[in-house]
Write a protein that binds this DNA or RNA. Structure first.
Lengths: 244, 244
DNA sequence: GAGTGGTCTAGACCACTCA
DNA sequence: GAGTGGTCTAGACCACTCA
């Protein structure tokens, strides 16, 4: 395999290999938690050197799409194991680690995408969405009220029953029940005053300061598949971030 | 050069090279904005292959310590150029990009480290610090009130005059005037209610919700050198973050 | 001991920058 | 055209896992 296609801009070989691997992941050829073939095997299959496969796999590992384990193999990253979940839950108690997380379902229903939701999810206005509202408890304290919206088409049969049956981690459910893996998210944070809707579920008075987190979550290929707005009571919790 | 030293745990060659390069940076042998020697030159100097140097340099580039430019060379990252500054200023207008940033100095004086500051900065309680309080304007709107504390020892002569003479980017000043380069930071975000101290500089009423950002900033080798607490009025601005 | 990923080398050639 | 980083190959050997 050589760089051909002069038009779609020059892409190095390892990027093309990366794309081929990503396609295998998208198609479900290799599922979350499973191992992909060894470097030598992939090199043979794609007719390139091991070094080129390595470079492609390294980038995917870096993006948390694959997980390398020396001596064992390379695995498809999963929200189910390894508490990689916590990468997407940045709220932490001020003192001590996150020990438990529980969710109480407030509501799960079908809605129509408004203009903003449609724009962010790359859909038509009015497209059917599933809207999930929940209260999350960290270490048995209710601190987050969140609303998630996802395209109904991608999540057929997502309802209260499904949610209650499969634990509290939404991204684990997306992955195991609907074959949608979240790999990246963009967040916008603001401090806002609690209104009636957000104050009550968290046991606060209206006007109390809340950390609002608006998120667009993406699957492979930077395709947006979830819109989320969360509100966190920061009395004893904070949002942790590392900059570099 | 071969892996020797059996005791301090096995470190691959490229990590040792990485450390040697970092030492050159810390010592000021190569200064921010300057280029470091070419890969082949470094390979000759350290008596390893170009590939090993490349691996070390790649990691440092990844950490935003070095910047690679094909055809030109490898440069020491700088807060002065390339608006790499914005990596550490996550506050953005809700609509449109950051066009201008200005700072008004509120206060600059010497203080003593309290227990918390001492712990976070790896100092003794009571150590001399310089405390800087400022109001930052983004696109000509005053939206951030911030307080930074740094060890006085590391920043001799840091005073109001210095600050007013060298523009508004603190990390650029640290770098150009005091040879302290910030490479990483940990932040904790909370929503809080404005008190008298924070409300007035931002033109808000007490009790208004503010986004509080507490930061520990690190130089090479993860040495903590700045403590910062900022408050942002989120009426028309937000904190942007990417998770993956 | 077989198989995996991790490190290291040597060398060829490409893409880009600049004088 | 000389010099830089970027890609790609082939091959050796190491560290780690597991049966």
């Amino acid at each position: 395999m050589k760089p051909d296609a002069p038009f779609p801009a020059y892409q190095p070989l390892y990027r093309q290999i990366k794309l081929l691997i990503t396609e295998g992941l998208e198609s479900g050829q290799w599922k979350p938690g499973e191992s992909i073939p060894s470097e030598l095997e992939l090199a043979k299959r794609f007719n390139v050197s091991q070094g080129t496969v390595r470079k492609a796999v390294n980038e995917l590992a870096q993006e948390n799409v694959l997980v390398r384990r020396q001596g064992r193999g390379t695995f498809v990253a999963s929200h189910a194991h390894e508490r990689a979940q916590l990468a997407f839950l940045r709220i932490t108690p001020d003192a001590g680690p996150v020990a438990t997380i529980e969710a109480e379902l407030v509501e799960c229903r079908r809605v129509r995408a408004d203009a903003a939701a449609a724009r962010n999810l790359d859909l038509e206005t009015g497209s059917p969405l599933v809207r999930v509202r929940r209260v999350l408890s960290v270490n048995a304290k209710r601190v987050i009220y969140e609303e998630a919206k996802v395209p109904a088409e991608l999540f057929p049969g997502l309802d209260a029953e499904t949610l209650n049956a499969h634990g509290c981690m939404l991204y684990t459910i997306y992955e195991s029940e609907f074959h949608v893996r979240i790999v990246e998210a963009e967040e916008r944070l603001k401090a806002v005053a609690a209104d009636a809707d957000t104050a009550h579920p968290l046991g606060l008075r209206e006007g109390a300061p809340l950390l609002m987190m608006e998120r667009v979550a993406y699957t492979y290929g930077r395709r947006p598949v979830e819109l989320r707005r969360s509100f966190c009571n920061c009395a004893e919790h904070h949002y942790a971030n590392i900059i570099n």
